[in-house]
Design a protein around this nucleic acid. Sequence first.
DNA 1: GATATAGTCAACCAATAAGTTGACTTTAGA
DNA 2: TCTAAAGTCAACTTATTGGTTGACTATATC
Lengths: 104, 104
Amino acid sequence: MTQLDQTFAALGDGTRRAILARLTRGEAALSEIAEPFEMSQTAVSKHVRVLSEAGLVRVSKRGRTRYCRLEAAPMKQAAEWLETYQTFWEGRFVALARYLEENP
Amino acid sequence: MTQLDQTFAALGDGTRRAILARLTRGEAALSEIAEPFEMSQTAVSKHVRVLSEAGLVRVSKRGRTRYCRLEAAPMKQAAEWLETYQTFWEGRFVALARYLEENP
DNA sequence: GATATAGTCAACCAATAAGTTGACTTTAGA
DNA sequence: TCTAAAGTCAACTTATTGGTTGACTATATC
């Protein structure tokens, strides 16, 4: 799996996106993160691991608690990949078609 | 699965992203799409189905061949979701933190 | 020292994903 | 009409995902 694979795959789950949204409000302990979800802490822990392996979250241990921090950097590449298609969802095909003609 | 789930999940696979990239060069038959990949046409067909169910590709039958067209619209939502995090990967936390303070 | 809290780990389960193959249908072309 | 091409479908395999529970470790706190 490439970084892009991991990033997109990690984002393809609502629970994980919600975790990331939570982390925009600042660092949080795993138990805090898990609290609003109707699933075991272990399950949330697994989601955090997926995010962490994708580089979207950094976990640091202090005492007995694990603090999670948002690490948005990998999203940049994903956003850039998507931007390639912006002309298409905006319906401006012609400009891109010409660009691709001129840059084969 | 929400639309966003489906979009991100569909993009979390290199083969599928390659298919989409191919389709930026215009409509293509399934067999054309499948040709460069080292897997069966059936496998590619399944990938196209995933893309189609995510609304990222539209398939139209003409004669015995299925033509696939890029349908980029769902990417817009994904891009917008990612943009929310732009301030983070750019390191401009302060501005967003203030925004969130003022808009709780 | 006793107990509660934060979290991991291993084992398990059910569902889904990603691929294969072989048989089949439909359409095109010689 | 015969054959080849485009594609689907069903069945199967293997691996991964998303979740559970129960036992465990490590750290706080009383």
